[in-house]
Design a binder for these strands. Structure first.
Lengths: 206, 206
DNA sequence: CTTTGTTTAGTACAAATGTACTAAAAACAA
DNA sequence: TTGTTTTTAGTACATTTGTACTAAACAAAG
């Protein structure tokens, strides 16, 4: 990949994060890089292409960070690690979160990919859950669809915590990411067995 | 309020909900109503004013519906009624939910009002919670900030369930609103005592 | 050196949008 | 009726934005 192309992506990401997607035009990016719009357009014929390229960067990043964090610590720990590292990745590309619905609406490619992604995540989630139940960390379902609903909630929380945070404060700091992953992860706590709770208190809340 | 003014608000709401805020210009609204843009501008000098007017309609609607639904049924029931009726009100003004962050970012007035609103809600939430605990429906906190975090999650879920839903399916139906209020309300379930659970199973999940 | 392909700058254009402004029409009051 | 205010239509404008197009500069290969 040429240097200019990399620079464009890097600068776009920075500006998108800082000012929001709709406040950054191609001219803004070009100006900031001291290159012409024509040049920028040579590398990305359409504005969409920049956004899509960034999306797939993000996906890649999340994938590798999940693999890493799921091997560290115990069964319960790795479950929480995944949430946290996902949130951290999203944080680096936070403009996606802040204009999530807009992007999904306008970018066919991203929408299609994201839908598939959720399916995979759901599968992974239920695999982990089954494992946790089998090992006595998590209680069985009491209500029908109880864990399915939990997954839906976790999904919403992962996708929109940043939007919510941005309402309360102008900028999102890295520290807030950690706070929110705590908040989200705590969704699991009341479903834990005694054994699970002990584990939780020992490792997570510290 | 003049008839034209009402019509503008009504038609704007309809179009915003159907096509999304950014796909509806003043001309769109005027055309659809068979009036001139000049006329529309006589009633609303700025585009913002339409959106703000709709926002305060919504707030009013939520307020009255909360009062109504909180008197029906028992203590636990009324708690869930509030969630459901809030979601239903939001559903009628769903364009807000779909472009929530954008609107909050751009509309100083709305942002300020919304921040205050959240504070009031939090107060109400904790009042209800205390009541539920005192009456033995809800267990005490085990973790520090456990219920504060629960509130944060509920807040995010209420504000962004529609955004999430819109990713999965093009249109949001009224039936989906009821499904999602179920999903959201179920957040409370694992915190209930035995007494609370019995009550929950008797009345809510049916 | 010449040729060929890549990269860059510059210009121009079409479309959309919010909004300001003017004047006509309608409604209303005296 | 006459005068005044409210309501409506029409036009025009400034701005922004994505993008198409052309040609120059540059790099690399033969």
């Amino acid at each position: 990949m040429s240097n200019t192309k990399e620079n464009i992506l890097e600068q776009s990401l920075k500006l998108f994060n800082e000012r929001g997607l709709s406040n950054v035009s191609l001219r803004t990016v070009a100006d900031e890089l001291n290159i012409s719009v024509g040049n920028l357009q040579y590398h990305f014929k359409k504005r969409e292409h920049i956004i899509e390229a960034l999306y797939f960067q993000l996906v890649k990043k999340i994938d590798t960070s999940i693999v890493k964090s799921s091997t560290l610590g115990g069964m319960l720990q790795s479950f929480f690690n995944i949430t946290q590292s996902t949130l951290l990745s999203f944080f680096e590309y936070r403009f996606f979160l802040l204009d999530f619905t807009l992007i999904i609406r306008q970018h066919e490619k991203i929408r299609a990919h994201y839908k598939e992604l959720i399916k995979v995540r759901e599968q992974q989630f239920f695999n982990s859950l089954t494992l946790l139940i089998e090992n006595g960390f998590l209680r069985e379902e009491i209500l029908p669809s109880e864990y399915k609903n939990l997954f839906i909630r976790l999904q919403i929380l992962s996708d929109f915590w940043a939007s919510s945070a941005s309402i309360h404060s102008e900028k999102i700091s890295k520290n807030m990411v950690l706070e929110y992953s705590q908040v989200i992860n705590q969704s699991i706590f009341p479903y834990l067995t005694e054994k699970g709770r002990i584990q939780y208190l020992k490792k997570i809340e510290s």
